[in-house]
């Protein structure tokens, strides 16, 4: 494992910690899209079905369990915690699941490497992860007074994707037979989706102003 991959994973982990801190600490999930969180849970479930059959390393197994556990907890808090669920912006979080899930499913069926249930679901998870942030970005646009934790959450998540691209570039030049067009394409698409957000994030940071995305 190279330093970019490790840093990327740590950013991912940190983004989840920041989100959980916000949700449990201030008992509010204001500005957080439940749809994006549920899509991430679906991404992790469909991707990590091989958790007990395909052992790579203790690190990988532990991280998979952590991602499954924390994303379940986040969805649970937002849906069922009697205080936290009151702070969810349900009326604003209107992005349609089907708009993201259906194309991902069709593409997975059309492009899967082999046609086994595990492989098709894994491919589906790669496509879905690329677009799962979209409900969150739309909600962010509609949210007035985005708090720091929410802004930092999305920033950390975007950084994780950016670092994974550096990881792939590094692996491309250091490993033989490291050719993963599907993963690379989806990863680049996913990172491009964040570009607009990054622009306004840095702008607000530079001007020392509160983050606001133009509608």
């Amino acid at each position: 494992m190279n330093v970019f991959r490790l840093a990327g994973d740590m950013m991912h982990l940190l983004s989840i910690v920041v989100l959980l801190l916000k949700i449990t600490g201030i008992k509010s999930c204001r500005g957080i899209s439940l749809k994006t969180q549920e899509l991430y849970l679906l991404v992790f479930i469909t991707r990590y079905l091989d958790i007990f059959t395909n052992f790579v390393s203790l690190y990988n197994t532990v991280m998979k369990l952590v991602f499954l556990g924390t994303s379940s907890a986040i969805v649970y808090y937002m849906r069922y915690d009697r205080i936290i669920k009151l702070t969810y912006d349900k009326e604003q979080d209107t992005f349609k699941y089907l708009l993201l899930v259906a194309p991902s499913a069709v593409l997975a069926l059309a492009t899967s490497h082999v046609y086994t249930v595990l492989e098709v679901l894994w491919t589906f998870s790669i496509y879905l992860e690329a677009v799962a942030i979209m409900p969150q970005l739309v909600l962010l646009q509609r949210t007035q007074n985005i708090d720091n934790l929410t802004g930092n959450y999305v920033f950390l998540l975007g950084s994780y994707r950016g670092l994974y691209i550096l990881n792939w570039i590094y692996r491309f030049f250091t490993e033989k037979h490291y050719r993963q067009w599907l993963v690379w394409t989806c990863g680049v698409v996913q990172t491009i989706i964040y570009c607009d957000f990054f622009y306004y994030y840095f702008l607000s940071w530079q001007n020392n102003e509160k983050l606001a995305l133009p509608a």
Binding site: H12, F67, V114
Partner: peptide, 10 residues
Amino acid sequence: SAPSPAKDEL
């Protein structure tokens, strides 16, 4: 068959 995409990332 062609090599399966690497599943060593998260």
